[in-house]
Design a protein around this nucleic acid. Sequence first.
DNA 1: TGTTGAGTTGAACAATCCTGCAAGTGCTAA
DNA 2: TTAGCACTTGCAGGATTGTTCAACTCAACA
Lengths: 112, 112
Amino acid sequence: MSVPLYQAKAELFRTLGHPVRIRVLELLQDGPKPVRDLLAVVEVEASNLSQQLAVLRRAGLVTSHRDGPLVMYALSTSDVADLLAAGRRILGAVLTDRDALLDELRAGGPAR
Amino acid sequence: MSVPLYQAKAELFRTLGHPVRIRVLELLQDGPKPVRDLLAVVEVEASNLSQQLAVLRRAGLVTSHRDGPLVMYALSTSDVADLLAAGRRILGAVLTDRDALLDELRAGGPAR
DNA sequence: TGTTGAGTTGAACAATCCTGCAAGTGCTAA
DNA sequence: TTAGCACTTGCAGGATTGTTCAACTCAACA
């Protein structure tokens, strides 16, 4: 294998590791949208958004095609939504654990 | 909220975006392991592995505790395994799409 | 044909991340 | 109490990323 599997996985996750890219993917979960609409929600320069869209395109997570004067973007597979959902679940688990620890700490908990 | 949710999500994914960290998490899916064992499988300097473990610890994805002379690591929640599985699925979808395109290209497919 | 709106691309600079080396901590056994 | 594993931590580079500005393409329309 030219690129080890775990490296491909790492690249996939790294692609998701950017606030703007995450937001775009979440917005696209509701269906295809033109750049125009994304730009209205995600407050960032047009060229910046375009760069991030290019990253998502290269990774194969989204597809784009021109529709008249607009360029439309869509998730390339609904599996992307699953991945985001899994991320949300983990974040929930990790953050509540962290809060629990924090509460313990505040209460001068078990460890002391 | 002090840290927007989508930024926390991005950080989570970025944490997974490194080959060594991915491998460690996959190894830990089979149960807790000492650094020693991880080091034997993941070919990297001890200090490097330690740095990556620290990243995973800070992100709350793994926990560690000393057991005699060894330090044991474990996944902090089984949700992590779900996330990895979702990643694998997507990678499958994206890569087969890519291969299909590649095949089309080789065959001088539809586009021409 | 020229102009305007919608996006993209290239390039430079700044910010971040990775890696490896050297030094340090903790435990255990001689 | 010294030696020796088993790890961790603190940097100092070098390598990657991210952001922005300017320039460019494409389509629609006056």
